[in-house]
C-alpha cells in the first residue's frame, strides 16, 4: 500500500502541490485526472522520488521512500515518464534491457535471468517480431509498447505512467489500456496513471483522484468522482454524465455553450 502524507512540493518558488494526502491500495488501478497545471505530473514525480517535496512523506508498505537505496527503489516502483529520449538508434531488445539495470552489477552486464525476463516481457507484449529493429524507426504505437516492455522488465509491483496514451490513436489507446488492465488483473500490479480522457479514466480505473490547483478535490470510485457538478466546477465547463450501457461505468459528454442557450 502507498500512503501519501501531507505532501507539499513545487519548483523553485512556485508551490504546485498543497498538502496532499491520499492512500493507494495494493492492486488499485488508480487514475489521476484534472486540468493542465493541476499538479498531476508533479505528484507522480514526488511518488517516484524524482523531486524532493518541501514537506510530507510517502510510505510504501510502511517504509519511507527516502530510506530506499536507489537500486531497491527501482525494484519496487517503475515509472514511464511523458518524455523518454528514443532518438538514438538502439535496437528494441537493447532498449528493453535498460529495464533490467537495477538487477545488474556496476558495469551493467546482463545475466541469463535478465535475458529470460526481457524475452518473457516481449512475448507478453507481442513485440518479438521487431526486436531487432531500431527504436527511432518505430511508429508511436509500437514505441509505446517497447517503453512499456522496458518498464515491465523492471519487475516491480507498482507501475506509474504519466499520460501513457495521450499521443496515440484510439486503436492503440485501447491496446495499451487492455495491456495495463491485464497487468492489473492477472499479474496483480498496482497501476497509477495520469489521464486526460475522463471516459477512459471512468472505464478502466477502479479509483480516481480529481485534482485542482495542487489539491485533491475529490477521490473515490469513478461513480463517485465523475459527477457533473464536480467536473463542471473543476474544468469550468458544461457536461452531461451518462452511464455506459455495456460496462455500467460513467461517461462524460461535453456540451457546447451555444446549444444550452438555444436549446
Amino acid at each position: 500500500m502507498i500512503r501519501i502524507e501531507n505532501i507539499s512540493a513545487g519548483y523553485l518558488n512556485k508551490e504546485v502541490l498543497k498538502n496532499i494526502s491520499c492512500d493507494i491500495e495494493q492492486k488499485d488501478f488508480f487514475g489521476i485526472i484534472g486540468k493542465n497545471g493541476a499538479g498531476k505530473s508533479t505528484l507522480l514525480k514526488i511518488l517516484c522520488d524524482l523531486l524532493n517535496p518541501y514537506s510530507g512523506n510517502i510510505y510504501i508498505d510502511g517504509k519511507n521512500i527516502k530510506s530506499f537505496s536507489k537500486k531497491d527503489f527501482a525494484k519496487t516502483i517503475s515509472f514511464l515518464p511523458q518524455y523518454v529520449d528514443t532518438s538514438l538508434s538502439f535496437t528494441v531488445s537493447e532498449f528493453v534491457m535498460f529495464g533490467r539495470y537495477p538487477y545488474m552489477n556496476i558495469f551493467k552486464v546482463p545475466s541469463n535471468n535478465d535475458y529470460t525476463v526481457t524475452k518473457k516481457v516481449m512475448d507478453f507484449l507481442n513485440i518479438t517480431d521487431f526486436l531487432e529493429r531500431k527504436i527511432n524507426e518505430l511508429s508511436d504505437g509500437e514505441k509505446q509498447k517497447v517503453l512499456i516492455a522496458q518498464v515491465l522488465a523492471q519487475e516491480t509491483d507498482i507501475i506509474v505512467f504519466d499520460e501513457p496514451i495521450s499521443h496515440l490513436d484510439i486503436g492503440n489507446q485501447n491496446d495499451i489500456l487492455e495491456i495495463l488492465r491485464d497487468l492489473n488483473e492477472k499479474y496483480n500490479k498496482t497501476i497509477i496513471l495520469t489521464l486526460h480522457d475522463l471516459n477512459i479514466a471512468g472505464e478502466f480505473c477502479n479509483k480516481l483522484a480529481l485534482m485542482e490547483n495542487g489539491s485533491i478535490y475529490r477521490q473515490g470510485t469513478p461513480e463517485e468522482v465523475l459527477n457533473y457538478k464536480d467536473i463542471e466546477r473543476v474544468y469550468n465547463t458544461t457536461v452531461i454524465v451518462k452511464t455506459n450501457p455495456i460496462s455500467n461505468k460513467p461517461y462524460v459528454i461535453p456540451v457546447s455553450k451555444n446549444k444550452i442557450k438555444t436549446g
Binding site: 514525480k45 517516484c48 522520488d49 524524482l50 536507489k70 537500486k71 527503489f73 527501482a74 525494484k75 516502483i77 517503475s78 515509472f79 515518464p81 518524455y83 523518454v84 529520449d85 538514438l88 538502439f90 537493447e94 535498460f98 529495464g99 539495470y101 537495477p102 545488474m104 558495469f107 551493467k108 552486464v109 523492471q154
Partner: peptide
C-alpha cells in the same frame, strides 16, 4: 552501458536506479 542509460533522459535513467 551506464552512458547508454543516461542518454534516455534524466527521469527515465533515475527510475532505473
Amino acid at each position: 552501458n551506464i552512458i547508454n542509460a543516461i542518454s534516455l533522459g534524466d527521469e527515465k535513467s533515475k527510475t532505473i536506479g
